[in-house]
Design a binder for these strands. Structure first.
Lengths: 326, 326
DNA sequence: CCAACGCCTGACAACGTTTACCGAATCTCG
DNA sequence: CGAGATTCGGTAAACGTTGTCAGGCGTTGG
């Protein structure tokens, strides 16, 4: 039995009889033999490692992203390496070096890394394929899996306006994330359609975390013209706004309606359950992984459908109600 | 310039003058040259990949685990591969194969995988080093990073008893997880010390998820002798119990005290904030990674301090109060 | 009986790096 | 100035797998 017969048998290559293949597989099983991946990688010029970079601090987002990507990888051929990286915007080249040094076959870029032109430049120069999940700019560049943030923002704002709210506070996420800008743009469209303008005094800036969300919600609610509704750009900040309201003696949704974003776990476990927008994060991550792998396995030819859009879903729950009279 | 001089320069090996080393590094930088990791792995007989397996569905737990491990790996020498695996208890060999086929240098085992003797057998047979995070059994086996679950359970139960509660419901987690057993054991000790026995009719079994927690909380609260307090074995189930109570017209903590476990994100964002027990998950994961890497770098000699224990911390918040009169 | 085909063996090169060994050149110090 | 150390080049081997090429063997079909 020569080594390459074993190789052929295990790799289901031709020129091996069924009987021999069977015996080889049984022997491999019995001896707990596994081909050395480093040697395979060396000759195949592929590591079978896919990287996943993210920065957003919300645990549920990270886990959904990860699970989505993993569900595409579950045949075990590729492996997922997680590479979180803080403050991409201020040092994109560092992330680039990290990714290039990690020996990856390809990388999944979540916001805001997917919107760093310098990073994309580096990856292209070094021929490291990448897929971008919900990017905001340069939508024609690389593999793109997109959600229409603006449409989602429009939907939730329209819902709030339909309930009769006029003074609506807005808690932005980290302004360096594309989602913040897109969602705000959707709010503006909805306000314009209903003949209302957005009151810029009622816009405050958070960073997608509970802690900061709580602070800015307090200032929003203790201002001179207290809003009757709050649009928070993610669920964590929405829950923080509810906590702040409750401490100030306001009940939700009687005195204040609150809507979040992301349909994260907290949006379901909070009380009252949050009206929110479902982003199919896991599905988008699956899709990104799928397209990346298709490119890696398909010798890198660009595919026909360059973009795949996923649609949002407005989930109306108990945290929003009609505006209080007067 | 021969290849090996470059190799020596980049690896800070001796027999290279400072000037040459400097020039080599600059050239490598300019050309974006990175040594091929597969070739390095092949000759070093190491992949510089660390695996992390987990099963628990809670996102905050997963992310803390991951971040803890990553914070130890941040020099970039090792990379972290995530390998979630459902239902380890029913098919430990499958997980073993997955891990062995992934070409790892070592693996971090979270519950309940860390308590599968068959899995540990496989890993030992194949010489794949592992570190176990909060195992329950066979504490002398492999690298162990432990928390005293029983002491933590004792602390939270003692707190509840000190508030004067007598009818205390208990929502167990997945009974195959070590934490469930250890925590329950701690409850029992606390009850015994206060002269009370545990009422087995008030023990129900969940699986650490919100959905099942909600169901069993309802049955608990609609039983003949409604408890005045609930000890849930994690925060997700505690939040579920609060939601169930609220729907049945009970207010927390006036009518019902609820305590959770884990100090997860929901415990802080829930209303009222949950009394819970802080498990230093990230710190334990860091520790597990630290010890695993020490073993990998140190040629595998067993270290002196075989176990490191991390201590819990009872966090009393607004979801627990004195038992209602009568 | 010969040709064609499928299965298998053997020898060998290749992937990109590190390591070992051997010299030659240069430098340091007494 | 000479002994010894240090630096650097050359050549070769090794890591474990896959690919190529030539060829042997057995079976089948003409």
């Amino acid at each position: 039995m020569t080594p390459k017969t074993v190789s052929r048998a295990l790799n289901n290559a031709p020129h091996v009889s069924a009987a021999v293949r069977q015996k080889v597989k049984e022997a491999a099983e019995a001896l707990d033999y596994h081909p050395n991946l480093a040697a395979q990688s060396l000759i195949a010029r592929r590591s079978f490692l896919i990287g996943l970079t993210y920065e957003r601090p919300s645990p549920s987002y990270v886990v959904e992203l990860q699970n989505g990507a993993l569900s595409r990888l579950d045949d075990g051929r590729y492996r997922l390496v997680v590479l979180p990286f803080a403050h991409v915007a201020s040092r994109p080249e560092e992330l680039g070096k990290l990714l290039l040094r990690a020996g990856l076959d390809g990388v999944l870029l979540a916001p805001p890394a997917c919107d760093q032109p310098l990073l994309l430049d580096m990856l292209e120069r070094q021929r490291l394929p990448y897929a971008r999940i919900t990017p905001h700019r340069d939508l024609g560049r690389g593999l793109v899996v997109a959600m229409d943030e603006s449409a989602a923002g429009h939907a939730v704002a329209t819902h709030m306006l339909a309930l009769g709210h006029k003074r609506i506070g807005i808690i932005l996420g980290d302004p360096s994330h594309a989602a913040s800008i897109g969602r705000l743009e959707g709010y503006r469209r909805a306000f314009a359609e209903s003949g209302l303008g957005i009151d810029d005094d009622l816009i405050v800036t958070g960073d997608f975390t509970y802690a900061i969300g709580y602070q800015v919600a307090r200032t929003l609610l203790s201002g001179p013209r207290r809003p009757t509704a709050i649009l928070a750009q993610n669920d964590d900040m929405a829950v923080a706004a509810i906590a702040a309201a409750r401490e100030m003696g306001l009940s939700v949704p009687q005195d204040l309606s609150v809507a979040g974003f992301d349909n994260s776990e907290v949006s379901r476990t909070a009380w009252p359950p949050l009206t929110t927008v479902n982003q199919p994060v896991a599905q988008m991550a699956w899709d990104a992984a799928d397209r990346l792998i298709a490119m890696l396995d398909g010798k890198g030819e660009p595919e026909v459908p360059q973009r795949r859009d996923h649609s949002h879903e407005l989930l109306v729950r108990a945290s929003t109600a009609a505006a209080p009279a007067g």
